[in-house]
């Protein structure tokens, strides 16, 4: 009998990159900041490790159960749920009770992701939405930094909360903020570790420079221009709060950011403007999460209006 051959459409070669490899790289890129965050938890280190693991496994578990109960293909091996879990943990204080990441994971995976159709279909970033949900529901627990290594018992505030009062209230230096010697959510404190992770993603071409660089530059320029009571500290501003985490890892989330290059730039500018405005005039000391979530909602509109110019476009008369 004659040999049978595989027949398929073009192209017959594919790049090595897959959803799996991308998610794995994002996970790897988040590790330096996670490790620094855990170490900086000081006495709370065991709890920090527990909530990180619980968050990751809760996300994987919820995704698995949803797909199992709905007789869908189980896709937890693509690591997208694990990345959501790690990002969610990085947004929590080291003192968080163990049930909190579970609630957050449930909201992120079930409500934000699976209810809308699973991977690729959610319109807001699940990890950020999980954090926003927890912050709104348990504001005290979500902002309790007591017990961590760099907690200042006198001011009991994060760098951005101090800035809200004024530059004179600052008890941390820019270098403290850069190296993570400040209180704050687990994964957001060390700008250096986040930049290392971000550069890894840039080098691996998993993210483009457009969103993170524009986002950070816009925040830098606007905070320099707007200033705070008693002065302007733009370098300190960009190293503090969730900006580095948000700019490199949240705003660059494929699913919830524009697909067009021009759209990505516009999206980043929007994130930057909103962040600076919330920090300056908003009720919260920090505005990264809400800025990104608001811009997530505008993505369809941005995509629609930033379509690339097609090759050989003929102007319609």
């Amino acid at each position: 009998m004659a040999k049978t051959f595989t027949v398929s459409s073009t192209p017959h070669v594919r790049s090595k990159e897959s959803i799996n490899s991308i998610m794995r790289d994002v996970f790897i890129a988040l590790l330096p900041a996670t490790v620094v965050g855990i170490i900086n938890s000081g006495a709370l280190m065991p709890n920090a490790i527990v909530i990180t693991l619980v968050s990751i496994f809760a996300c994987i578990f919820f995704e698995f159960m949803w797909q199992k109960l709905r007789h869908e293909k189980i896709t937890i091996s693509d690591m997208s749920a694990a990345v959501t879990g790690l990002l969610l943990a990085m947004n929590m204080p080291a003192s968080a009770p163990v049930w909190m990441p579970i609630v957050g994971a449930g909201f992120a995976i079930l409500i934000c992701k699976q209810l809308f159709g699973g991977l690729g279909q959610n319109f807001i970033n699940p990890a950020l939405a999980g954090r926003a949900f927890l912050l709104a529901s348990y504001p005290t627990l979500m902002t309790n930094w007591a017990g961590t290594k760099f907690y200042d018992a006198v001011s009991a505030a994060t760098p951005l909360a101090q800035l809200k009062t004024g530059v004179s209230a600052m008890t941390y230096t820019t270098m403290d903020a850069f190296l993570g010697r400040v209180p704050g959510a687990l994964g957001e404190v060390c700008a250096l570790a986040l930049i290392i992770g971000g550069v890894y993603l840039l080098v691996k071409k998993i993210i483009s420079w457009r969103i993170p660089v524009i986002y950070i530059v816009v925040v830098f320029v606007l905070t320099a221009a707007l200033g705070r009571t008693g002065g302007r500290v733009p370098v300190y501003e960009i190293c503090s709060g969730g900006l580095m985490l948000g700019a490199f890892f949240m705003a660059t989330d494929y699913v919830t950011s524009p697909v067009t290059p021009k759209g990505q730039m516009l999206f980043a500018v929007g994130c930057g403007v909103l962040t600076a405005f919330i920090r300056k005039w908003g009720g919260y000391p920090e505005g990264v999460s809400y800025s990104i979530l608001i811009m997530n909602l505008l993505v369809p509109l941005i995509d629609k209006n930033t379509r690339p110019k097609i090759f050989g476009e003929v102007k319609k008369a």
Binding site: S80, G120, Y254, T260, Q264
Partner: peptide
């Protein structure tokens, strides 16, 4: 074939 996850 997986879902499009809008990587662009």
């Amino acid at each position: 074939e997986r879902n499009c996850f809008r990587c662009g």
